[in-house]
Design a protein around this nucleic acid. Structure first.
Lengths: 147, 147
DNA sequence: CAAGCACTTTACGTTAACGTAAAGCTCGTC
DNA sequence: GACGAGCTTTACGTTAACGTAAAGTGCTTG
């Protein structure tokens, strides 16, 4: 599967639009503050599929976006399996059959419901944090007054 | 939010002060759709501290609320350690010294920042889900039209 | 040409958050 | 008094999501 020698003098010009930039694994890692190991792991889990140049992974804009979405999903508490579910079906969409598409819609509705519940959870937790914050400040104030 | 069921038939006299009720581990488990094992685990991790009656655990209103908050935190992706951090400091508040209180405020600000980021994440992910949903429906529609 | 990076694969290790099984008490009931 | 339901402890097992170490490849720079 080793790609034969790449075209010799392709780079060296700066006029490539952002869209067509490509990244090394280290660049992406620094960009998103994760380790290369994490990125390789996501590939192994089917969330990324970078090109290879010889042995090295080459990430393009699409991959960068995928990684961004993946990390966002993670911050919201989705598992990699859940994220993959959406991402892969999204890719299979153009030529997907009706049953697959309906399944995708199902999944999307599910995720959305999840998000709505999270919004409510955030609202409630905010109130509680406010409350605790308030009490703590009051105790602090009273400490400052005596003595 | 588990709104208590509306007062049934008893006209005026029946007060059910939820305050003084106590629960078994199984009741709580069914109530929140978790296993008893989970509840015992949270106790072991210092998030709950139910009374004992003989050998059996007795949970009171305070414990129920704690469990509710813990599970909410979990849904938002907080680790048990993070949740404990807030919960324990909250308990230590009344007699807490200034340094501890300031630390608590710090933690609270941190959690709040986290929530704000999650709100933004949710907003973005909603848009993306909408987008995918829209495309999927279009493909479906086109499938229905041909043939 | 040696040294130093940045990348690679392989593979075992680790942590959080439980699951699950075994073995035993206690209480009401048939 | 045997039984099942529900509780208990102890302890080993499991899964997800990486961490970490070892050993090798390829470029470029002093």
């Amino acid at each position: 599967m080793t790609q034969p020698t790449a075209p010799a003098n392709e780079a060296s010009q700066e006029e490539l639009p952002r869209q067509h930039r490509h990244y090394t694994i280290g660049e992406l890692a620094r960009m998103f503050e994760v380790t290369p190991r994490t990125i390789r792991f996501y590939e192994q889990e089917g969330l990324l599929a970078p090109r290879r140049e010889g042995q090295k992974r080459i990430y393009r804009e699409k991959d960068r976006v995928r990684l961004k979405l993946t990390l966002r999903g993670k911050r919201l508490g989705f598992s990699l399996a859940e994220i993959r579910e959406v991402v892969m079906m999204y890719d299979a969409m153009p030529d997907g059959n009706a049953r697959q598409l309906l399944r995708l819609l199902e999944i999307l509705a599910d995720k959305r419901a999840n998000l709505e519940r999270q919004l409510e959870d955030i609202r409630l937790m905010r109130m509680e944090l406010d409350d605790v914050d308030h009490r703590a400040r009051e105790v602090l104030r009273s400490l400052g007054q005596e003595d």
